[in-house]
Amino acid sequence: MNAADVMTSPAVVVSPATTVREASAVLGDHGFSALPVVDDEGGLVGIVSGADLLMAGMTPETANSPVARVMRKSVISAPMSATPAELTATMLSQRLRCLPIVSNGQLLVGVVSRSDLLRILTPADAVLAARVDAALRSYSGSPRWTVEVHDGEVSVSGPFADVAERKVVEALVRTVPGVRGTQVAS
């Protein structure tokens, strides 16, 4: 497994001519911490973070100025061949929330975020089990049932007050995104 398997691609990017206001809107709309800045050929020429934009201030003059005035031109990036361990080490040692992935030295092909790396560390079934468990705790107010997940198939076991509660739990489990099947047993 390498960066090409983990990265988000295509990356959401801005150009050096994008205004500070437009870049701020993109960051806010997507919830990103930073945006790669690319030239017309897709080459990585900088990065602009929310902190960069805040430090620039939002006066009418700076809001309409190009990102090129506030972006950082020195960008840490990684090649597509970088392993998850290498990506993690780089991100942690440099205190990065996202890491641009490049091909042929500068051509941006994607971005790896902390979330991307966490996803590969956590099996999908474990994530789904946690979501189902959270939904059931929200419904009941306490951990009343045992949740097991195998390949998206959810099994819930434990005591049910009656048949109606059992049906409610089964319906609730089916509403959790990613659930492929449900089995409820007392």
Rank of each mutant, 00 (worst) to 15 (best):
T62N: 09
T62H: 06
T62C: 06
T62Q: 11
A63I: 07
S65Y: 05
P66C: 12
V67S: 03
V67D: 02
A68E: 14
R69Q: 14
V70R: 01
M71H: 05
K73E: 15
K73W: 12
S74Q: 15
I76M: 11
S77F: 10
P79Q: 13
P79E: 13
A82P: 03
P84Y: 03
P84E: 07
A85L: 15
A85V: 14
E86L: 12
T88N: 09
T88I: 08
T88R: 13
L96H: 03
L96P: 01
L99S: 02
L99N: 00
L99V: 03
P100A: 03
P100H: 03
V102N: 00
V102T: 10
S103C: 10
S103E: 15
G105N: 07
G105H: 08
Q106Y: 13
V111F: 00
S113L: 04
S113C: 06
L117N: 05
L118P: 04
T122D: 12
A126M: 13
V127E: 11
L128G: 01
L128A: 00
V132G: 11
V132E: 05
D133R: 13
R137A: 07
S140M: 09
W145N: 02
H150D: 15
D151P: 06
E153D: 11
E153W: 06
S155Y: 10
P159Y: 13
F160I: 08
F160E: 02
E165Q: 11
R166G: 08
V168N: 02
V168F: 01
V168M: 05
V169F: 01
V169L: 04
V169K: 03
V169C: 04
E170H: 04
